[in-house]
């Protein structure tokens, strides 16, 4: 091999490789040689296909920019959320709730009907073996598919209707909408919008824990929303609240409420807190600064 090839050999290789030595560039056949109005894939047809692609891409990007991807609250096994799969699984989800596809009949649901339907779809070339390709000339195959499509549309719609009714009945909002609205409110109030879980040591400590205002905080029922450790529950955390709010602002929030928080002043007075204690509480809260906590 290393000494070159003999001129009478039929197949000539490149060096000692297994690649056959070609005769150089072969001009591709003229496309007029093909029947009808065929054209070359690259570049003629690909350019046209790319134009369709660009239209799709623009629509897709408009959707992406106008509708940000949804994000709810961090997973919490104790939360009461109506479970919902992505939309293209809804038909299957709804179907598996039907009486003859769930409970004692769940095997019929999962393996029986779904298994046969998806198995038939997978193997349709071996079930519908006739030569006829036009769909109206093979009524059984087409009818089964159209029937399945209607079933899928019906079940998807049923699942969605069911879900919206359930939302109404429980007074829930989908979490991603709730989070977005809350983030907007927090943003307007100048608070951080993040729901990210903070690790323990990055949370600002309580300043002056022994202050009598801590007792007032409990009696005035603040703890029911802001929690006994001030970390917040249904209301926001008050740790380090002094960094973003002055005493006057805190007094105003206690008196008038803010966002979901009702005006708390009268409630606090009703719970046996004096005006003076309330003032002390506001002052104490205003002293909750991250710097002072260190």
């Amino acid at each position: 091999m290393a000494h070159g090839h003999k001129s009478d050999e039929k197949v000539v290789f490149v060096g000692d490789s297994r690649v056959k030595k070609g005769s150089g560039w072969v001009t591709p056949p003229d496309y007029t040689a093909y029947p009808g109005k065929s054209e070359a894939f690259i570049p003629n047809f690909l350019l046209k296909e790319w134009m369709v692609g660009v239209v799709v891409l623009v629509g897709f990007l408009v959707l992406t920019i106008s509708e940000p991807a949804p994000l709810g609250y961090p997973a919490d096994p104790g939360a009461s959320v109506i479970p919902m799969p992505d939309w293209y699984f809804l038909f299957l989800y709804e179907y598996l709730k039907l009486p003859y596809a769930s409970g004692d009949y769940v095997v019929l649901g999962t393996l029986g009907v779904s298994g046969v339907a998806f198995g038939a779809l997978l193997l349709v070339p071996f079930l519908d073996t006739g030569k006829e390709r036009r769909f109206y000339k093979r009524p059984i195959t087409s009818a089964l598919m159209i029937l399945s499509l209607f079933a899928v549309i019906y079940l998807t719609n049923a699942a969605w209707t069911h879900y919206t009714h359930e939302l109404e009945a429980t007074g829930q909002k989908p979490e991603h909408i709730q989070r977005e609205e809350e983030a907007k409110e927090k943003h307007a109030a100048g608070l951080p919008t993040s729901n990210a879980k903070q690790s323990e040591d990055s949370v600002v400590a309580i300043v002056d824990k022994d202050n009598p205002a801590m007792e007032t905080f409990k009696t005035a029922t603040c703890i029911s929303c802001h929690a006994a450790d001030l970390k917040g529950a249904s209301g926001p955390s008050l740790r380090g609240v002094g960094d973003t709010h002055s005493k006057d602002e805190i007094v105003a929030i206690i008196n008038n409420g803010q966002g979901n928080m009702p005006p708390m002043k009268d409630i606090a007075l009703g719970a046996g807190v004096t005006e003076e204690q309330l003032d002390q509480l506001a002052e104490w809260l205003a002293s909750q600064k991250a710097d002072a906590a260190k």
Binding site: P70, G72, A75, V81, P83, P85, D86, Y88, P174, E175
Partner: peptide, 19 residues
């Protein structure tokens, strides 16, 4: 689609995956 749905690890993802 099914596996990607869990990855943001929000409540929707968590409960859908449980189901």
């Amino acid at each position: 689609g099914l596996t990607g749905y869990l990855l943001p690890w929000d409540n929707k993802a968590y409960f859908a995956t449980k189901v």
